[in-house]
Design a binder for these strands. Structure first.
Length: 859
RNA sequence: GCCCGAGUGGCGGAAUUGGUAUACGCGCACGACUUAAAAUCGUGUCUCGUAAGGGAUGUGGGUUCGACCCCCACCUCGGGCACCA
């Protein structure tokens, strides 16, 4: 029998499946349903390389099995096409980004199709389609029109907040909001102007206007993303294109108050079937710290400086305070700082440092605020006050107290000769008189001294007691802080969703009404930067005249909710119908790269949690189960990239070996979540496997297979079913290879059994299995046939092999009945001819029997 | 620097999670078929040793009747965070 012609067969079946809508999601509402989703791609200009489809193939194998198991499958695909790369591609090729995206999508779609993925293409979405981004804008407005109520621990409409303000002011409102919100009564609120009200509400909104520093390139007249900045030979930050200097610039932005959801995003992880690795990354990113805020009274002033600390047990050794350069205390008290000119000079220096230049940890810089001192509330001692850029204005309270136990504080003290102290007993061999850092003491188990009544307690024990003690004197309060920051939700670029807000002439901001959505991107001749750092939209007269917001949304906007749109992709009235959301609820299995751990996966969870609060979706979490595919590296072990010239194109592989071979190989090459180097040399093994399966047809007759083969078959059905469920595709393929090896040794193979084998192979090699299946007379597609069930009785081994060890070394094997009694097995082992010599003249101390596995004789 | 994860043949990897290490595949060698080659099929393939037997899962120790698996220390590689108080 000749080998099969993959080119002919694969094309043929793809056409037939397409025509028959084999993979179309049913509109039925049967209970057995499953939503299997791939992270949708960014359609770049260069098309797919052989690594991209790995995740798609894995999810496809899974979806195909589940479909055969009788589930109604939602398995869609779409394109995430807004963002910087498309814009850059367009700039380079001098075409409109829209056109670039259309071209790239075409390439992607052709390449995805040739692999035989079982998507329901009728549900395709594209984030740049106004019919799609209408709803991105709509969700943005819901977020914009909401605030976070800490008491109820959920988001609520901003209208309800206005009502509260009207009735009782903001004194009792417990909300997550921007700092510097002054208190006001209901009466005061009612007397505020429209603009004032607008500004106050802005501090509470979950999407709010603010300012942040951006990377500004004067020469290019544009704001750069971190990816667009490189270090030149002198270590200065310059633009990747052109090598122009980059500096910091304060720009108007929009923010998303993701910090309001920090705790929910942290706690929510517990119930998710995600890898511990990704959970760990998100946990670290959220960065929860429990500690306390301590007040340090300023000498000769009626004010305090507040410090956040997780190690209040070290407060007794605090000898100085360090403020962040942006700390308001400095701005407010210039008159009492005697060396203010020196301080201001330092602040100026710091201001011009880019983040990348600020990370020299070994070299601390700073200036003492002369004329200012504070009192250590724990022991009444006087402490000097410093300003240094190692303290971050954006974390905690923007101030720390310093002592010898912390490396950073220690470095600072050493450089400027500031006195240090310790309050946790040092190990005897550490000469802390010489001001060596006492890291060993900085553990939870360190013993306190120099701390009055707390002496002798461990740090861990002392901490709550010290907080309580200081709190009773009103010097401390227990607090939790998170490292996560609010997300910037604005880009000074053209190619993104317009933000559906208007700036009115009276200084207020108003949102577009639902009926005015989508606010479409204006078609402009030049979408290049206009030189001010603002988005090109700021150069569009009609746009500016209307007062439309000129920032556009960031790349992650459209991808933060797309999984909901697939449920009901054409709905013109809602982002998805209630019925569809009710039915599909959330994504059951989500497959994608782990590089999105702190971006997309966090933002999506945030939006979904928000939509849940507002009653638009039924589950808090969008992705119940997450599987991350490993990257396929080039043969040289590096990432595949045009730059290295090591890219393997799937077109060539499909052309030479066929899609089925590519699929089997990518599943077989190693564990799904592991990064692996590609090897075109090895792929032939997968093709041989398929060829052998194909040739096995010759042995098929309408008879019962041998007992052995039957047993092997049912074992492999069990194994493959379990393995696909667990995304252990590599061992699933290997077990099918073993089955083929066994089957080839047989005289013949029963038709029924062979068909069952085809069925379990079908998710991996959909084309060739369909070809053989139909060739054997089946009328309906194999991909809608029902998944074979293994027969428990048929996989029982009547006899089992037991290894016999003497002192843990294997000396022999015996074959016994599958539930032979322990005593009999032990006796057989002792009498075994290969074992006896090892027991001569020895006293048997113990015999250990592990049922069905080994006997270990200890002498 | 801190926090994770991983180290098994020439190569990709498997090992029922403490129970016969190296399944399956690639490569390689030899053989069959062939005028010949390709393809295909068969046999072999961790290592030392003629053998009996010994040694091997990054290195060194430990726990155990028994360790790739658990514990301690170290080395190497990969990932995340990065002055987070």
């Amino acid at each position: 029998m000749k080998n099969y012609d993959h080119k002919k067969i694969e094309k043929k079946w793809q056409g037939i499946w397409d025509k028959n809508e084999t993979y179309k999601t049913s509109n039925s509402t049967k209970d057995k349903k499953m939503y299997v989703l791939d992270m949708f791609p960014y359609p770049s200009g260069v098309g797919l390389h052989v690594g991209h489809p790995r995740g798609y193939i894995g999810s496809d194998v899974y979806a195909r099995m589940k479909r055969m198991e009788g589930y109604n499958i939602l398995h869609p695909m779409g394109y995430d096409a807004f963002g910087l790369p498309a814009e850059q591609y367009a700039l380079e090729h001098k075409i409109h980004p829209k056109k670039a995206v259309d071209e790239n999508v075409k390439t992607f779609e052709r390449q995805l199709s040739m692999i035989g993925l079982s998507y329901d293409w009728s549900r395709k979405i594209n984030t740049t389609d106004p019919k799609y981004y209408k709803w991105t804008q709509w969700i943005f407005l819901q977020i914009y029109n909401s605030w976070y109520d800490k008491t109820k621990d959920k988001a609520r409409p901003i209208l309800e907040l206005e009502n509260i303000f009207e009735k009782s002011g903001n004194l009792k409102v417990n909300a997550v909001c921007n700092i510097n919100t002054d208190n006001f009564t209901s009466k005061q609120w009612c007397n505020f102007s429209k603009k004032e009200k607008n500004e106050i509400l802005m501090k509470y909104r979950l999407a709010y206007e603010g300012y942040s520093e951006v990377n500004w390139c004067k020469e290019m007249g544009t704001v750069l993303a971190n990816d667009e900045i490189v270090q030149d030979s002198n270590g200065n930050s310059v633009s990747e294109r052109g090598g122009y200097p980059v500096e910091k610039k304060l720009m108007r932005q929009w923010f998303m108050r993701i910090t309001a959801y920090a705790e929910k995003l942290l706690v929510g992880l517990d119930d998710l079937e995600w890898s511990d690795h990704i959970k760990e990354i998100q946990k670290n990113w959220i960065g929860k710290s429990e500690g306390s805020i301590v007040k340090f009274p300023v000498n000769n002033m009626d004010t305090n400086i507040e410090v956040f600390t997780t190690r209040i047990d070290t407060i007794f050794s605090g000898t100085f305070l360090v403020l962040a350069p942006e700390h308001v205390f400095i701005q407010k008290n210039k008159n009492i700082i005697s060396n203010i000119s020196l301080v201001e000079k330092y602040l100026e220096e710091v201001k011009n440092k880019l983040d990348t230049e600020r990370t020299d940890e070994s070299n601390k810089t700073g200036v003492e605020l002369k004329g200012v001192s504070v009192i250590n509330p724990a022991n009444g001692k006087e402490m000097s006050v410093w300003v240094s850029d190692f303290v971050l204005g954006s974390y905690g309270t923007g101030a720390v107290f310093a002592d010898a136990h912390d490396k950073r504080d220690f470095d600072m003290a050493k450089k400027y000769n500031i006195p240090l102290a310790v309050s946790i007993r040092p190990e005897d061999d550490i000469l802390f008189e010489k001001v060596k850092r006492l890291e060993e003491c900085f553990s939870d188990e360190g013993i306190l001294f120099n701390s009055g009544e707390f002496d002798g307690l461990t740090s861990k024990e002392a901490r709550p007691k010290i907080i309580e003690w200081l709190a009773s004197k009103n010097f401390a309060i227990k607090t939790t802080k998170y490292k996560m920051r609010d997300a910037v939700f604005a880009r000074q670029r053209y190619w993104g969703e317009p933000i559906p807000l208007k700036h009115n002439t009276d200084g207020t901001i108003s949102e577009l009404k639902g009926k005015d959505l989508p606010l479409e991107l204006p078609n402009v001749k030049s979408y290049e930067s206009i030189g001010t750092g603002e988005s090109p939209l700021a150069g569009v007269k009609s746009w500016v005249k209307e007062g439309y917001e000129t920032n556009t949304m960031p790349g992650w906007a459209g991808s933060s909710w797309y999984f909901l749109r697939y449920m009901d992709p054409q709905n013109p009235k809602n982002f998805a119908s209630k019925k569809a959301i009710d039915y599909w609820k959330n994504v059951d299995v989500y497959v994608g790269g782990q590089e999105h751990a702190t971006g997309h996966l966090l933002y999506s969870r945030f939006w979904n949690n928000f939509l849940y609060d507002m009653g638009y979706v039924l589950t808090k979490e969008p992705f119940k189960r997450l599987k991350n595919q490993g990257m396929i590296l080039a043969t040289d072990g590096r990432k595949m990239s045009k730059r290295w010239g090591n890219v393997i194109n799937p077109d060539d592989i499909v052309n030479n070996y066929g899609a089925d071979t590519l699929r089997v190989y990518e599943m077989f090459m190693g564990p799904f979540d592991q990064s692996l180097p590609w090897s075109t040399e090895s792929i032939i093994g997968s093709r041989r496997f398929i060829d052998r399966a194909y040739r096995l047809q010759e042995k098929v007759i309408n008879k019962k297979s041998s007992k052995d083969l039957e047993k092997n078959l049912h074992k492999v059905i069990k194994k493959v079913t379990n393995d696909i469920e667990n995304f252990a595709f590599n061992t699933a393929v290997s077990s099918m290879m073993i089955f083929i090896n066994e089957a080839e040794k047989e005289e013949f193979i029963g038709e029924k059994d062979f068909k069952m084998f085809l069925q379990i192979l079908a998710p991996f090699a959909p084309h060739i299995t369909e070809e053989i299946w139909v060739g054997l007379g089946e009328k309906k597609t194999i991909h809608r046939s029902s998944w074979p069930k293994y027969d428990k009785k048929k996989i029982i081994d009547e006899t089992i092999k037991i290894a016999i060890q003497v002192n843990g070394k294997v000396r022999s094997e015996i074959i016994v009945g599958n539930d032979e009694e322990e005593e009999i097995v032990k006796n057989l082992a002792l009498k075994d001819e290969n074992v006896v010599p090892w027991l001569e003249n020895k006293e048997i101390k113990r015999i250990i029997y592990v049922k069905g596995r080994i006997v270990n004789i200890v002498v």
